[in-house]
Simulated scan of single mutants.
Amino acid sequence: MPEPLSANFRRPLLLLIAIALLVGSAAVWWWGDESSARFAAAAMGRVGLVLAALWLAWPSLRRPARWFPPAVAVIGVISLMVLAAQPRLIFAVVPAAGTLITITMLVRSFRGPPKR
């Protein structure tokens, strides 16, 4: 079984991905000719900004994330990235994320506290 990434590795990786998305967004914006290139550049820029904000908030996010099951953090980040890419999907993403979080919390409550 592979080892999970340590917290010391995750934050720099998040910054690297955010920078790559923002640089790629700028490159596509300047040199892309089609409207689909402009849409992709805008979406990459929004996702890059969300990931940069997560990088800034990483130290404060580590503690509250322990209160929830691990899937809740993943659902939240994926929801933020989808909304950053296409804000019109808010009416589909928010109920879907809420349903997934509720199911995750119910499953965790039936399983009991994690064993260490």
Rank of each mutant, 00 (worst) to 15 (best):
L15S: 08
P69A: 05
L89P: 04
A97C: 02
V74H: 05
W31D: 11
V23W: 01
M44I: 05
A7M: 12
A7S: 14
M44V: 06
V74D: 04
A27H: 14
I19V: 15
G76D: 02
L22Q: 09
V23H: 05
L100E: 02
L5Q: 09
P2T: 09
A18K: 01
V47T: 09
S25W: 00
M81V: 06
R88C: 04
V94M: 11
S79C: 05
L21N: 02
W31M: 10
V23E: 00
A73C: 10
A96T: 15
A37Q: 12
G45I: 03
A20L: 13
R66V: 07
W29E: 02
V23G: 03
I101S: 05
W30F: 13
P2D: 04
L54R: 15
R88N: 11
L89E: 03
G76R: 00
P113D: 09
L16F: 13
A92N: 08
S60G: 12
V74R: 07
L106I: 11
L80S: 08
P69N: 02
A71Q: 14
P113L: 14
P70C: 06
L51P: 07
G32E: 00
A40G: 12
A43V: 07
A20I: 08
A92H: 12
M81P: 00
S25M: 02
T102N: 06
R62G: 01
F9R: 13
S25V: 02
L5M: 13
F110T: 12
L15H: 10
S6N: 09
L13C: 11
V93H: 00
I19S: 10
A53F: 08
V47N: 02
V77S: 04
A65D: 12
W55M: 03
E34A: 12
W58I: 05
L61R: 11
T99A: 15
V50I: 14
A73T: 13
A92R: 14
M1P: 11
V107K: 13
L15A: 14
W31Y: 15
W55N: 04
I101K: 09
L22I: 13
W58T: 08
S60Y: 12
